[in-house]
């Protein structure tokens, strides 16, 4: 009797278990479903709408069609400067960051003494709050008097003008960004420690030298880490904000050479209250980010090596 009812109930229980899973799944996910709708999906759509309007955030937006986009590309020199600076920053700083982080991780992985100490030290700058970092850099990079000028003064020179002249400000910021690669170093180091030793042993048996081991074992195995680094740092570079904003007070001084895309967008939104215009900038940034990441993803099959097929 008891077994009979149990088996009779089984199909119904199974069916209700599926429903129960759905209900539970939705309940547990409900904070995020709400969050996605309110903090992500709605604002994304709203900003698409604002981008076709003139809107100061107080009065109702008035529809202006493509006017914002046309103005950005045809009349706004500051916008073009911001695009140039941001692309410059991304194109110069990302490859350098990859090379430095990879190189330092390689050296750290060479089973040397004090690996943990070095790793900690390299990681330190990424812990310092951006405000503190920006302030100490302003101080260090004070032209002619700052700490950075000391080695130049030793040779009787006054050194470059660093952040105070247009031709030096951009490269200086690239240089500063190289200070914050601790996370990437840790990622590469973790990747290197995952390289199976038998691959190196096999290469040794074949008489491979350091360079060919590096090219044929280390680099391929680490390409997924480079890929991850590339994607995150492209997004990071396009959003570069706090440090240049603090260092220049958001002015883009000198001669708009430190006016980055995010800074100009922020200024349009909250200083000039051109929220429609800023939304157009935000959507252009979004589209650009999408295209670039898509290209990187597409290119991945050409150069990213995944051990074990498609893990």
């Amino acid at each position: 009797m008891a077994t009979a009812t149990a088996t009779a109930n089984l199909p119904r229980r199974k069916l209700s278990q599926g429903t129960r899973h759905t209900i539970n799944g939705l309940l547990f996910a409900s904070p995020w479903i709400f969050g996605l709708l309110v903090f992500w999906i709605y604002p994304t759509l709203a900003s698409a709408f604002y981008s076709f309007t003139k809107y100061n955030g107080v009065r109702n937006p008035t529809f202006t069609g493509l006017a914002n986009y046309i103005e950005l590309f045809t009349k706004d020199e500051e916008f073009l400067a911001a695009v140039y600076n941001t692309v410059y920053f991304a194109v110069v700083s990302i490859p350098l960051a990859i090379i430095f982080a990879f190189g330092l991780a390689m050296m750290l992985n060479a089973k040397i003494r004090g690996q943990v100490v070095y790793r900690t030290i390299y990681f330190l700058p990424t812990l310092v709050p951006e405000v503190a970092l920006a302030l100490v850099w302003i101080f260090i990079f004070t032209p002619h008097n700052g700490l950075i000028a000391a080695p130049f003064r030793a040779f009787g020179s006054r050194g470059p003008c660093w952040l105070t002249c247009a031709e030096w400000a951009r490269p200086t910021l690239v240089l500063l960004a190289l200070w914050i690669i601790g996370q990437q170093i840790i990622l590469y180091l973790a990747g290197l420690q995952d390289v199976p030793q038998d691959l190196y042993d096999a290469a040794d048996v074949d008489g491979a030298n350091f360079l060919s081991k590096f090219r044929n074992v280390t680099v391929p195995i680490l390409t997924p880490v480079v890929f991850f680094h590339l994607i995150t740092s492209v997004i990071g570079a396009l959003n570069f904000f706090a440090i240049p904003y603090i260092m220049t007070g958001g002015t883009g001084f000198p001669a708009n050479s430190t006016l980055f895309y995010s800074i100009y967008l922020y200024k349009n939104a909250f200083h000039y209250l051109e929220m429609g215009y800023a939304s157009a900038m935000a959507w252009l940034l979004f589209m650009f980010t999408l295209v670039v990441t898509l290209i990187i993803f597409r290119s991945a099959r050409l150069w990213v090596f995944y051990a074990g097929g498609e893990d």
Partner: peptide, 16 residues
């Protein structure tokens, strides 16, 4: 959402 630049949601969120 990890790919979405925060500037896209920044303005509408501020309005909300």
């Amino acid at each position: 959402t990890l790919m979405l630049p925060f500037q896209v949601t920044m303005i509408p969120l501020f309005i909300v």
